[in-house]
Amino acid sequence: MLFRQLEYLVALSRERHFARAAQACHVSQPALSEAIRKLEDELDVPLVLRGRRYEGLTPEGERIVVWAQRLLADRDALKSEVGALRTGLSGRIRIGAVPTASGAVALLTAPFCLAHPLVTVEVAADLRSEDVLRQLRNFEIDAGVTYLHKGLADHFQAVPLYEERYVLLTGTADALPQRTSATWEEASRLPLCLLTGTMQGRQVLDEVFAEVGVRPSPRVETDSVASLFAHVRTGRWASIVPHTWLHVFGVPHGMRAVPMAEPARSVPVGLVTVVREPESVTARALREVAGRTDVAAALDRLPGDSVPQ
Rank of each mutant, 00 (worst) to 15 (best):
F3H: 13
S13F: 03
F18W: 15
R20K: 15
Q23A: 15
C25H: 00
H26K: 11
A31S: 13
I36H: 08
I36D: 04
D44V: 10
Y54S: 07
E55A: 12
G61A: 01
G61P: 02
V65N: 07
V66N: 09
L72E: 10
D76L: 05
L78P: 00
E81L: 14
E81W: 13
V82C: 05
T87L: 08
G91D: 00
R94W: 06
P99L: 02
L108P: 11
F112P: 03
C113L: 14
P117R: 06
L118Q: 15
T120Q: 13
T120C: 03
L127N: 02
L136W: 04
R137G: 13
G144R: 07
G144P: 11
L152C: 11
H155V: 06
H155C: 08
L161F: 09
R165N: 11
R165W: 06
L169E: 06
G171W: 04
D174R: 04
L176C: 14
A187K: 02
A187E: 01
R189P: 00
C193N: 05
L194I: 04
L195H: 03
T198Y: 06
V204Y: 14
D206P: 01
E207D: 14
E211N: 11
S224Y: 07
H231I: 02
R233H: 12
T234N: 10
T234H: 10
V241I: 14
V241A: 09
V251G: 10
M260K: 02
A264E: 15
V267S: 07
G270E: 08
V275C: 14
R287N: 01
A290C: 05
G291H: 04
G291S: 09
A298H: 13
V307Q: 09
